[in-house]
Design a protein around this nucleic acid. Structure first.
Lengths: 184, 184, 184, 184
DNA sequence: TATGAATGAGGATTCATTCAT
DNA sequence: TATGAATGAATCCTCATTCAT
């Protein structure tokens, strides 16, 4: 008896996020997703061509959300350095909220996926805009070689702090801002 | 047809390193290892009690070698800062040589394995000794909170540079030394 | 190609009975069951959590059926001795019909399984009820030590007759009744 | 470095008996036998063509020993009934001593093996000689149909008593003699 | 469209057997 | 002759994917 499922993609999204956080990326099976989301296995395949597409889409959407929030910061009426600090705090919070998810990106070389190239491009764009403001405002000049590396490293460090030094959010954020200030 | 295989452990080691680099840690199966190394599946189990022991041993040995080389640097007749630079260059080279393998310490919660607690303890010890020399010699003082984070981050950044900006070794190392000098 | 299989549990049951009779309990593998029943290995695991559950369930069901039939006899309007004879004939027939399966209760320490403790308890109950009627009606008195041994032995002997002297059913049953009459 | 092993067959025999008693027939592997006996796996294959031959030989030898002891009883200066009682006691003791072994004969349909046909023939011969003396001396007459069944059943019952009612040797033997006297 | 039973290749692991030493 | 490392088919079991309903 076919029925119409509402918010199917949202339901799948929530289930996958929950399951990845609970069991880790590799341990999540299609059956588990079906059960957790209340959607039949077969139905999942009506929305995603295979498991990889499903999971990468979820991680993708999760990051897209994060990036949207980061972009908002850049549009605020603040000095670039204030924006930088807010950017880092926000990045930390976002990753913190979906802990497992951020991590899994690194673990499974997911970032080689086509979808994540898009995500990375978006992140890059935001980060570079922030850096540009900083350079213009404070009269600094970071070379391209430095920029492309530091942007990745900042992200990586944030993910690492969230996953490694759990329950030390205050110190983590302080550290993050401190090294950012030293480097930028 | 039973035969005596020479350098069997080395063959297994090489095969696993190759396969992890090519397919990632989780995707490596015992069959693949057997095929790649030219050694029967059953034989692998004469040397390692199960898959986990095999793979963790390979990663473990790879890192142990690296750490041995890093330790040598600390015993040289150099200023602490010279040692730091040499340390970073050497760390980079080591990780570079066994690219995929380096990654695995971070990923897959391998660091919860007994073997890797040992590895991390050893890395920590070496790094902290270097930092101590730096502080004593240059009259600096890094707090504990900073030290425990930076040591992990330096490692992470190095691994990331090796994996992300391939064929840009010179620039990677330069960048690595530059940010280390800014932070330490 | 997924399809809906009818009478799947019956098919599995039949296949396992056949295979145990043909090859013996220990020699039956999941692959064999899958092949013989025409059901994929994975499907077997949709119905039984593992091999042990599958095989013990089959043996269990086979015996349960037998016991149900034996119990009916006790409720007939007959003298206890007539019931005894009918009981033995029926026991013989039942075991005869699923030859190999009967054996398995004795073999393989299956009787340590929870399921078989239940079966044995049920058999014991029926047998002792029969003995009690016999004692009351004929004024006999078998001690507990005797009863607990003879009940097992009767079963064992029946199984042995079925398996050893094939195609001699008439003589087997006659023999069975004769020794039962001498002993009870 | 080849060496001469003394009493090789005895060592293997002891190891197998020990292992079967300890782990059960199916759980005994060639490696275990090699380890327990102190003889290399390869060497075992110099003495037995395969695992089945090895294990059946061991069980075979065990029973041969038992039969030799039973035969001695028949040659004693006793009445046939006294011999019967002694025979049963001795049979019980023998089986009791190599508990696991006797049982495994039943469990694994080993008695279908060529070697065991020989064993059974020997057992049959002894038992029938005893029965004949009994008939001649006491003026009884058991038909062939009865004899061929009862001889098997006596053996079976004895094995069952040993395995089922452990540590009740006295009662087991008493029961055994009692039913034998009722049946013969 | 939604379902979930059915599929079977592929996972880790075992172990009887072989044969170079 | 004795050894035991090496072999690989066979074990149980999982799970992404399909398709009749």
């Amino acid at each position: 008896m076919p029925k119409i499922i509402e918010n199917i993609e949202q339901k799948i999204f929530n289930a996958v996020v929950l399951l990845i956080r609970r069991h880790g990326y590799s341990a999540v099976s299609m059956r588990m997703i079906a059960k957790e989301s209340g959607i039949a296995v077969g139905t999942l395949y009506n929305y995603y061509s295979d498991k990889e597409e499903l999971t990468t889409t979820v991680v993708y959407l999760s990051w897209k959300e994060t990036l949207k929030n980061l972009e908002i910061i850049l549009n605020k009426e603040l000095t670039p350095r204030e924006k930088l600090h807010l950017f880092l705090e926000s990045l930390y919070d976002e990753i913190s909220q979906r802990r497992g998810i951020g991590n899994e990106l690194m673990k499974h070389d997911l970032y080689k996926d086509k979808k994540f190239i898009e995500i990375q491009a978006a992140y890059t764009k935001i980060f570079r805009r922030l850096l540009k403001e900083l350079q213009d405002f404070e009269g600094k000049n970071f070379g391209e070689s430095f920029v492309k590396r530091i942007q990745k490293n900042i992200l990586l460090i944030t993910i690492n702090l969230v996953n490694e030094f759990i329950e030390e959010d205050r110190e983590n954020i302080e550290y993050l801002k401190k090294i950012a200030d030293q480097l930028l």
